[in-house]
Computed example of a mutant assay.
Amino acid sequence: MSYIGGIALILFTTTIAGAISERIGIPIVIGQLLVGILLGPAALGWLHPNVLLDAGAEIGVVILMFMAGLESDLKLLKKYFKPALSVATFGVILPMVCFFIYGEFMHQSFERAVFWGVVFAATSVSISVEVLREFGRLNSKEGATILGAAVVDDIMAVLILSVFVSMFGNVNQTSGSPSLWVSLVEQAVYFVLVYLLIRWFAPFLIRLFEHLAVPQAVPIISLVICLGMAYLADLTGLSAVIGAFFAGIAIAQTKAHSEVSANINPIGYAFFIPIFFVSIGLEMNFDHFWRNISLIVVMTILALLTKLIGGGLGAKLLGFSWNSAYVVGAGMVSRGEMALIIAQIGYQAHLLHASVYSEVIIVIVLSTLLAPLMLKQAINRLPDTTHES
C-alpha cells in the first residue's frame, strides 16, 4: 500500500508547489517538475519511478493532450491562417535545422540529432497568453497570430513526433514488427479515421449520449473517444498523444465542448497531470551537470533565438512591422509542457540519450521562464497605434 502514500505525497506537494509558482509568477508545471526532482533520486530519494506512477503519467499525458486539442480554436486559425501558418512553419523549421546541426556537432547519432530539433520545435503559449492578456494585447493582430500559430505548431509538432517515433523509436519494436510500408499504410488509414471522427463520428456519438439518462454520459463518451484514439494510434506505431490531441479537436467542434472541458479538466489537473510532470522530475539526475554546462548554455541560446527569429521572420514575410514581428517571435519562444511531453516520449523511445536528458529538461525550463520576460520587453516596443481589437 506504500504507493497510496506516494500518490498522496505527490498530490499534496504539487498543490503547494503550484500555489507558490503562481505567487512568484512561474508556470505551475515547472513547480510540479521541481517537486519530482526534490522527491526523486536526484535529491531526497523518497520517490522512485514504478509501474503505477508510469501508468498514471501515461494517462496524464494523454488527458493533457486531449485538453490541448479541446482548447485549439480552429475558427481563430481560419481567420489568421496565412500568418499563423507562416509563423509556425518558420518557427518549426529553424529550431529543427539548428538543433540538428548542433546535435551532429556534439556527435549525436542522426536520429538523436534530429530529435533534439523535434523537442525544441514545440511551442506552448499558455504563458504568452497571460502576458498578452496583462498588456491588453490578446485580441490584437499579434495576439491572434500567436494563438493561431500555436494551433498549427502543435499539430506540426505532434505529427512530426509521431512519425519520427514510429520510424526510429524502439520502445515497442520487435523482430516481428511490420515493415515501414505497412506501418505507413496503417498510419494513413488512421488519419482518414481522424478526419471521419472530426467530421461525423464524434458529433454523432455526442448527440447519441446526450439522450442517455446517465450522469456525465457526454464526458464519459468523450473520454472513451480520447483513450480509444490514443490506443489506436499506438497500435499503428504513432504516438498515443496524437490520438488524444485529435480526439480533443473533434470534441471541440461539437456543442458539448464546454461541458466536456468543465468535467475533464478537474480529472486531469487534480490527479493525472501532476503525476506526469512529477514523473519527469523523477527521471532526472545531475551527475553530468557541470560537465555539460556549456551544452546547457548553447542549447538555451539556440532555444530562445530560433523561435524568436523563426516566428518573427514568418510574421515579417506576411507584412507585419518589425516591432509586431518581434512580438510574435517572442510569443512563440516558450516551450512549456509541449516540449516536456515530447522530451519524455523521446526518452522512453531511446531517441534522447540518458546522459543529456536532464540537461534538455533544464533548457526547456529555462526557455519557459525567460519567454515571458522577452515578450514583455517586445510588447513595450509596440506603439499604441499598432494595437488592434
Rank of each mutant, 00 (worst) to 15 (best):
L352R: 04
Q253W: 00
S239Q: 07
G314I: 03
M96P: 11
E337Y: 01
Y231A: 00
V185H: 13
G45A: 08
L147Q: 07
S128N: 10
A217R: 15
F246R: 07
D384E: 15
F245S: 04
M156Y: 15
L64V: 13
G60P: 06
P266M: 12
A270I: 07
L366N: 04
G248Y: 08
I301G: 04
N292W: 09
L305C: 09
L227Q: 09
T145L: 05
D54T: 15
A240R: 04
S86A: 14
E259Y: 01
I16C: 01
F201R: 12
I24W: 00
G336I: 03
F191T: 07
F99T: 01
E259K: 15
N172F: 14
S321R: 04
I345N: 00
P219H: 01
F66T: 06
L184G: 09
I221H: 06
Q173I: 15
A121L: 13
V189A: 14
W116H: 06
T254W: 10
V35D: 06
I198W: 08
P266A: 11
S162W: 09
L197K: 12
A213P: 02
A149H: 12
I249A: 04
L34M: 10
G69L: 08
G117T: 09
G103P: 04
A303G: 07
T145N: 10
F12G: 11
A188T: 13
L44E: 07
G281R: 01
A55S: 13
Y269C: 05
Y195T: 03
A315Y: 01
I37A: 09
G329P: 03
W181S: 14
G136T: 06
G31C: 02
L340M: 11
L308G: 03
T174D: 03
A202S: 11
S389N: 11
W46K: 14
I37P: 06
I242R: 03
V165I: 06
Y195K: 05
D153A: 07
I267F: 10
L318A: 05
L33C: 12
F135Q: 04
Q32H: 05
S183W: 09
M374W: 07
V260L: 10
L295H: 00
G6W: 05
V131C: 07
L232Q: 10
V131K: 02
V119E: 10
N265D: 14
N285E: 09
I280V: 12
H107Q: 14
A270T: 13
K316W: 08
L138V: 11
Q377L: 14
P383T: 12
S358R: 12
S183D: 12
L351H: 03
F320D: 00
L370I: 14
K79C: 08
L74Q: 11
L369K: 12
V333R: 09
L77N: 05
V328N: 06
V62S: 13
L132W: 03
M332G: 13
L232T: 12
R381V: 05
F271I: 14
V360S: 02
V328C: 05
W181G: 03
T123L: 04
I361A: 13
